[in-house]
Design a protein around this nucleic acid. Sequence first.
DNA 1: ACAATTTTGCAATTATGTTGCAAATATTAT
DNA 2: ATAATATTTGCAACATAATTGCAAAATTGT
Lengths: 139, 139
Amino acid sequence: MSEAIRELLKKNHMSVTDSRLQILDLFYHAPGALAHADIEKKASDKIDRVTIYRTLQTFEEKGIIHTIPSADNSVKYALCKDQCAEGHHHDNHVHFVCDNCSKTICLDDVLVPEVKLPGGFEPHQSNMVVNGLCNECRS
Amino acid sequence: MSEAIRELLKKNHMSVTDSRLQILDLFYHAPGALAHADIEKKASDKIDRVTIYRTLQTFEEKGIIHTIPSADNSVKYALCKDQCAEGHHHDNHVHFVCDNCSKTICLDDVLVPEVKLPGGFEPHQSNMVVNGLCNECRS
DNA sequence: ACAATTTTGCAATTATGTTGCAAATATTAT
DNA sequence: ATAATATTTGCAACATAATTGCAAAATTGT
Ligand SMILES: [Mn+2]
Ligand SMILES: [Mn+2]
Ligand SMILES: [Zn+2]
Ligand SMILES: [Zn+2]
C-alpha cells in the first residue's frame, strides 16, 4: 500500500521522504479534504509546520493535490485524480461542504457546468462549491 | 447619497456610526469586491482594524454584504442586492476574479446553475467563482 | 438633557504564514 | 558500500492576520 505512494512520488520526480509519505498517506485515508491544521494535528509522527506548508505547495505544483476554495479563509486540499500534471490541473468537479459535520468532499463525477459570461470576459478556470447536508448527516 | 446609506442602516436596525457609513460608502464606490485589507487602506479617516472585522461580520449577518470564496485565503466582500435579509442570503450569482488585475466582480445577471448531486446530498447554497481575464484587461 | 444601550479603540493574546540557514536525509556516482 | 552531490527538513526569527476583554466614546430612546 505504502508502495503505491512511493511510486506516486517517484513518478513525479520527487525525493521520497518520511514527511511526504506520511502526508500523502493521510490524504489517502482521509474521509474528505484536509486543511493545513488537520494535517498538523493528525500527523502521527510530528512534522514541522513549515514542512507541511512546503509539502502542500509542492504537491499542488506537481498536480498531486488541488485546493478547494472557501468563504471563511480556510482553504482545504484533496488528492487529484490521474490527469493532473505539473502546472496543469484538471479538477473541474464540484465540491461539497457539509454544514453539519463540515466535511469537504470531492464530487468527482459532478462536473462544474459552463456558464455564459457577459461580453469581454474570458474564463480560464471555474470553481463550484455547494454547501448543505452530506449523505451521512442527512440519514 | 450618504442619505441612502443612512437609510440602509436604519432599515436593518443598526446604529448609524461613522465607521459604518464610511465602510458602506467604500463598498458603494468600489469597482469590485473588497477585502479587509482594502478597507483598512482606503478608509480616509482611519478606522481600527478590529472595528473593520466587527463591521464586516455584522454587515454579513444582516444581509448587507456577502462573502466571495477564494482558493488562496483572501476572502472578499461585496454588497448584496435587494432580497438578502438577516440570516438569509440570496446571492446566487457567479463571481469573476481577474487573473491579471485581480479585481473581483459580482456578475449579478449570471446565476449559478443547478447541478445534480449524488443521492443523499442535500444542497442548501451554491457558490461559483470563475477566474480569467476581465473585460478591461482583455481589451 | 439624561439614562440605557451599543459601538469603538486599545492592549494583550493567539493564530497563521514566510524566510534564511545549518543540519539531516535522500539520491547519484564511484 | 562509500563518498560526493543535491534536496529536504527543522529551527529560529520575523511578519502578518485574527480574536478577546474591557473601559471610553458615541448613539439611541425618553
Ligand atoms: Mn476536488
Ligand atoms: Mn456577489
Ligand atoms: Zn456531514
Ligand atoms: Zn482585470
